[in-house]
Structure formats: C-alpha cells, structure tokens
Nucleic acid binder design. Structure first.
Length: 305
DNA sequence: TGGCTGTGTCTTATGGCGTG
DNA sequence: CACGCCATAAGACACAGCCA
C-alpha cells in the first residue's frame, strides 16, 4: 500500500483485518510505502505496522510531495488497485467524505510495474535510526506550531458546524457511555507539558472523583485504560503546594484539540478513558459540547453524570 | 564474540512559578 | 483557585569500553 499519511488510529481501523489476511494463506506479505510530508504520519503508526508484520518503507528520495492513497492486491495474474482520496487515518477511513475506486490490471502492466519500482527505489526500509530522526524533526515542528499560536486545524468560518440540536435525544455512539459516574472533562487549549500532554485536574474533581486525599503533598496512583487503543498505564496525581493536581494524558496533545476527555470508573482507583476530538469525532464532540452548554469559556467545563 | 557496566541522550511524567 | 509557562526528575535507550 502507498499512503501520503498514516496515523495510529488509522492503522487501528484495519490492523485486525490486515493481520487476519496475512494469516489466512502462506507467503502473504504486506508492504507499506508511507510519506512523511507535512508531518501527518505518526511515528507510533509506523512502529505498530512493523510490529504487526508489515514491511514498512519511508519515502526519502523524491521531489514534490508523496501523495498517493493506494492499496494494491497482487496475484500472479492480476493486480487489484484500490485508489482513493483517503489517507490511512481514522477520519479518512470512517468519518470524512472520501471517494475511492477499484481497477483490475494485468500483473505485468508495464507502466504500473515501473511506477512501483520507482517508488521502491525512492524509499528506505524503516529502521530505528530513520524512525528516530523523523520523530525528532516532527516533534520540533509540532512544538513550533504550538508556540506560534497557529491553530493545528484550519476550518473556514463559513463552514457550518456538525448539527446536533441542543437537547437532541439521539446520542451519537461514544467510546464511553454517559452513565452514572462518567466524568466529562474539557481540555484547555494550552494545557502544560512538552507536547501539551499534561492535564490539570480541578481540586474538587481530583479529591471527589479520583480519590486524592485533601492535603498538600498527598498523592494517589490511578490506573488508566484508553478504551480506543486498549493501552493501560498507571499515573500519579499529587496535591502540589500550589494547589494544582495534574495527569499526563499524551493522547490529548495539541494536535487533538479542541477535545474532551471522558472517564468512567472501573474499580477502585482504576478508570477507562477516551479522547473525543473535534477534528476526528465532530458529531460526538458537538454532542458533548452541547451537554456542557455549547460555548467554550475561559474556564474549563466539566460534568460528572 | 558475548556479557557487563558506566555514561550520555532523549522522552515522559511530574512539580514550581507567575499571574489573573 | 486554576491557567499557562517553564524546569526537572525519572526512566528508557543507545553506545562505547572493558573483560572473560
């Protein structure tokens, strides 16, 4: 496959099917040629693909922008080309308006074979060094973007927002159900941490919801599971001397904002959580935004159901 | 050649400070 | 009290040097 950009959530959309496809017959392989232009491709996606048995190549020697969105199924006789407008991203595979078409060509079709060969010659197999280098330059770029106050997402003002009427009874599908005990927490545009991963927790919420003892210096360890990715981790929340309490949620980085966090208690000091971002989940985001009153203020909005 | 150890670098998690 | 800027501790990782 050939993609201008690939994200972790995009690969998550197809990884189960890809792995099943690989296992179904002997000698099946997947090769992925991924672009790095505009820093859309997430290093985590490349690592995950490689771990799942995909031969990953990064485009390194070309002019212009590497822009294809193409999947090729090859057999001895034919090649089936699925070419479209979507990248290997969750929004491209699920929520965007995209177009794709399928074309069957003979396996030896000269012009396409030459194209594939040219792409292969313009790329390098993903190595630790290559990945690290891309990751570093991408992080620097994201930091610069944040510092320059340029919003990550550009949306034309004339564009109408996703329409979920206030008080609408139809609830969009959320990764975490809004039931008794669910915490809906707004992420501020410039929360702290190197990549904006640190979320400050309101005192009332830290004590009342996460079980932090009400005295300076006390701390609580909580286990967090991202219900979208399945990642589980243990984090510490401390009552700092300046009455701030924080959590490092790297999924709520600058690139995902504006966004909401949803928490649901599982066991004692153990919570499921999900990030609902406006860019990736516009309907869900709008729905939650409406619940909180529909207008972001200087202070964060939060609600325990 | 392989294992161990010390050192440096980078990333992530955590906490302090200034300010409104 | 809480938002946003920043610093730093802790841990992961890479790599060189040494020795068996």
């Amino acid at each position: 496959m050939y993609f201008y950009g690939a994200t972790q959530s995009g690969w998550d959309e197809i990884r189960t099917h890809a792995k099943q496809w690989l296992r179904a017959r002997n000698k099946r392989t997947i090769e992925a040629y991924i672009g790095t232009d505009h820093a859309l491709t997430e290093p985590e996606a490349l690592t995950a693909m490689k771990q799942d048995g995909v031969a990953v190549f990064l485009l390194t020697c070309y002019s212009g922008i590497f822009h294809p969105k193409l999947i090729v199924f090859s057999s001895n006789k034919y090649k089936l080309l699925l070419s479209g407008s979507n990248n290997l991203t969750r929004s491209g595979l699920s929520s965007n308006i995209e177009f794709a078409t399928a074309v069957k060509i003979p396996a030896g079709a000269e012009r396409f074979v030459n194209w594939e060969s040219a792409i292969h010659n313009s790329s390098n197999a993903l190595s630790k060094t290559l990945l690290k280098d891309y990751e570093q330059q991408r992080n620097q770029r994201l930091k610069k973007l944040q510092k320059s106050n340029v919003p990550w997402q550009f949306t034309w003002r004339k564009r109408r927002k996703a329409a979920v009427r206030k008080g609408a009874s139809i609830q969009p599908k959320l990764p975490i159900k809004l039931e008794e005990g669910t915490l809906l927490y707004e992420v501020m545009p410039k929360e702290t941490g190197p990549m904006g991963s640190q979320i400050q927790i309101l005192k009332q919420v830290a004590i009342g919801y996460f079980g932090l003892p009400n005295r300076v210096g006390s701390s609580v360890s909580i286990s967090l599971t991202n219900v979208t990715t399945g990642e589980e981790r243990c984090l510490t929340m401390t009552y700092n001397s300046n009455t701030t309490m924080r959590l490092s949620i790297h999924e709520a980085s600058y690139t995902e904002r504006p966004c909401f966090l949803l928490f649901q208690p599982k066991r004692k000091k153990s919570f499921d959580f999900a990030v609902i971002s406006e860019a990736l989940d516009p309907m869900q985001f709008q729905f939650l935004d409406n619940i909180l009153g529909g207008r972001r203020q200087r202070k964060r909005r939060t609600l325990i159901f």
